[in-house]
């Protein structure tokens, strides 16, 4: 065998190497197969189909009946309801992302010290993770209900006018934002708490000896160390916020006057209630592009400030 190897000609070598490359690729393909099949069936096929539908007029049965090119896109970009929905979604996402991250950071900092009883608070703060969207919405409804809700009772006690949580143009969006932030808080709190535990304690001890103020410790030791986690929490929260559906469906149905009509809810309405698949597909494409753009911008703008160890 050893003798033969030394006698191999260059062209034999390349063909053998070529075969090796092919087998390596086949092996890789074999390993990738299950996920390729799944992604293909459940992600890429629907994606391609969505793009396809967005170029068509569709009938009540959802069948594409007439190719209209980019007309769906042109109509949507002039549709006041869709533009309002776009605007509301941007406000909503910005508010949810910033409030969730800031509140979770604040709570995690509070529950950081190892005192008696902090475990109870940690459990409480993280507990919203285990609450489903529908339960959370119903819980908050008890608070928001006009005339019989908790909010009204409290305000009434102090002889204050009621707040129109679910029916006022501005308050309705505030109500939905509150509910979503409250729900996201559990996960964000847990992630940030974990990151805080990992900041090396000797840095704080050194700072202590130097007599550094708590704010400066937080600013120059804590923040840089937890910045990857903060970035992760903000990105995940943002993408989740873009996809918020349940709270809107249960609390406001997009009302009043479309002030809580997030794009995902509008897509649902157009596809399954208004039975206009072409329009819904176009809206989905625009949403996908929007999420991609915002995520890209977020990476470009904030990742530089993130300190990876």
């Amino acid at each position: 065998m050893a003798q033969n190897t030394s006698a191999i000609q260059p062209h034999q070598l390349t063909s053998q190497r070529g075969r090796q490359v092919i087998t390596a690729h086949l092996t890789a393909l074999g390993f990738l197969m299950p996920s390729l099949i799944f992604l293909g069936v459940f992600v890429f096929y629907p994606l391609v189909k969505t793009v396809y539908y967005s170029f068509f007029l569709t009938n009540a049965l959802g069948q594409p009946v007439k190719f209209i090119g980019l007309a769906n896109y042109a109509t949507l970009l002039h549709d006041p309801v869709f533009l309002k929905s776009l605007w509301v979604t941007l406000i909503f996402v910005a508010a949810v992302t910033s409030l969730t991250t800031i509140c979770a950071l604040y709570l995690a900092n509070l529950a950081r010290k190892h005192l008696r009883g902090t475990v109870i608070f940690r459990t409480l703060f993280a507990s919203t993770m285990g609450v489903s969207v529908s339960v959370a919405s119903v819980l908050w409804l008890f608070f928001f209900q006009p005339t019989t809700g908790v909010s009204d009772m409290i305000l009434n006690f102090f002889h204050l006018p009621p707040i129109h949580w679910l029916t006022g143009n501005v308050w309705a969006l505030v109500a939905v934002i509150l509910t979503v932030v409250w729900m996201n808080l559990g996960f964000a709190f847990l992630a940030i708490s974990g990151a805080l535990e990992n900041v090396p304690t000797h840095l704080y001890e050194t700072a202590e000896i130097e007599g550094v103020t708590p704010w400066l410790k937080f600013r120059f030791i804590t923040l840089p160390h937890i910045s990857p986690t903060l970035f992760f929490v903000a990105t995940v929260t943002m993408i989740n916020a873009f996809q918020t559906f349940g709270q809107v469906d249960l609390l406001t149905k997009g009302g009043p006057n479309n002030h809580t009509n997030l794009i995902v809810y509008q897509i649902y309405r157009d596809a399954f209630v208004n039975l206009n698949v072409g329009k819904a597909s176009t809206e989905s494409m625009l949403l996908a592009i929007l999420i991609a753009l915002v995520t890209f911008a977020q990476f470009k703008l904030t990742e530089k400030r993130v300190m990876y160890q």
Binding site: L141, T147, T148, L166, L250, T252, K253, G255, P256
Partner: peptide, 13 residues
């Protein structure tokens, strides 16, 4: 007048 909004929640409220 009280405004309960719209949808099943308004109806229930």
């Amino acid at each position: 007048f009280v405004n309960y909004g719209s949808g099943d929640i308004a109806e229930a409220n």
